[in-house]
Structure formats: C-alpha cells, structure tokens
C-alpha cells in the first residue's frame, strides 16, 4: 500500500519539483528565498503516517539530490528528508486536533524547514563541505522560516485537498 501511495503521489512531487526548478528559482528573494518543494514535501509528510512520511521524504530527497544546484553527495538530501518526513509526521500522528489546526501545521513546517536545512548543512560539514559565513547562514535559516510562514497558508488548502482526495479515494477503492 505504501508503494502504491508513493507512486500515486510521485507525479505531483515531480510537478512541484519542476515548478521549483523552473519558476521559483528565477526569483531572487530576500534571504535566499524559499524552497517550495521542501515546504510542500514537509507539509505532505505532516499530513500522512510516519511510514508514508519517511517514504515521501525518500522520494522528495531523491529529487532534491538530482537537482544541479545541490552541492552535496547524492543521497545526502535523501537521508535528511527521510528523517525529516518521518519525524514531522510522527509528531502529529494520531492527534487529529493537531492536524486539523492550520496554525499547528504552519508552525511545525516553519520550524521543520530551517531545522532540515541546518541538518543538511551539518551533515555536509561532516562530508567535508564548506560552512561559509555563520551570519549568512543564520540570516538564510531565519529567512527560510519566515518565508515558510508566509507560503504555507497559501499552499495548505491545495495540499490538504489533493492529499485528502487522493488518499481517501484510494482508501475507498
């Protein structure tokens, strides 16, 4: 069932990935902007089970690793996103009050985005990557959190609707 759900949602992730790579990346926004794909993947994970969250993270991470702009080794984003997807879905799993409250989702994704990016940075450091300016990193993480707070409310209606439509129908079928 996981594989089927994963395959069902995969085209949607590819479309969002293409939007990220071909449209969002064209805009130079304050603080390095935001990753629509990362926000989408974490939001999607937050709405599913921990297993599905990990699987979603795996697929999303693979796509992120394939991006030409990724500096780390192939699999680094995959590893981070598996853990991020699992953790974010684990935190809200079984608590319907939490999942149905949009503010909770906004907050958890807004917190998860900079933490995920920070984890990617730390693991990249372990693989011999460059850290760069600490202040710049701080600004970038803060900006990504703020951008996430702005973007998630806009994205959430579509994501929740698609998610529920897709999975409820599949469950019924």
């Amino acid at each position: 069932m996981f594989a089927r759900r994963f395959l069902t949602s995969f085209p949607i992730f590819v479309i969002v990935y293409l939007i990220q790579e071909s449209i969002v990346s064209q805009f130079r926004i304050f603080g390095g902007g935001f990753s629509l794909f990362l926000i989408f993947a974490l939001l999607w994970s937050a709405l599913g089970t921990p297993e599905l969250g990990a699987l979603t993270g795996f697929g999303a991470g693979l796509l992120m690793d394939l991006s030409q702009t990724t500096s780390g080794p192939m699999g680094q984003w995959t590893l981070i996103m598996i853990l991020a997807g699992f953790v974010i879905s684990y935190l809200g799993y079984g608590d319907d009050n939490f999942r149905e409250n949009p503010i909770s989702l906004v907050v958890i994704v807004a917190v998860a985005v900079p933490i995920t990016r920070l984890a990617y940075l730390i693991i990249g450091l372990m693989f011999g990557g460059d850290l760069g300016s600490t202040f710049q990193i701080f600004i970038s993480l803060l900006a990504s959190a703020l951008w996430t707070v702005a973007v998630v409310p806009l994205l959430m209606p579509f994501v929740t609707r698609i998610h529920s439509t897709l999975f409820e129908e599949k469950s019924r079928g």
């Binding site: 795996f58 192939m74 699999g75 995959t78």
Partner: peptide, 9 residues
Amino acid sequence: LIVTSLFLI
C-alpha cells in the same frame, strides 16, 4: 530507506 540513502552517499 536510511540504508539506501547511505548506500547512495
């Protein structure tokens, strides 16, 4: 999944 990602790395 984690092992797969580590394998990829």
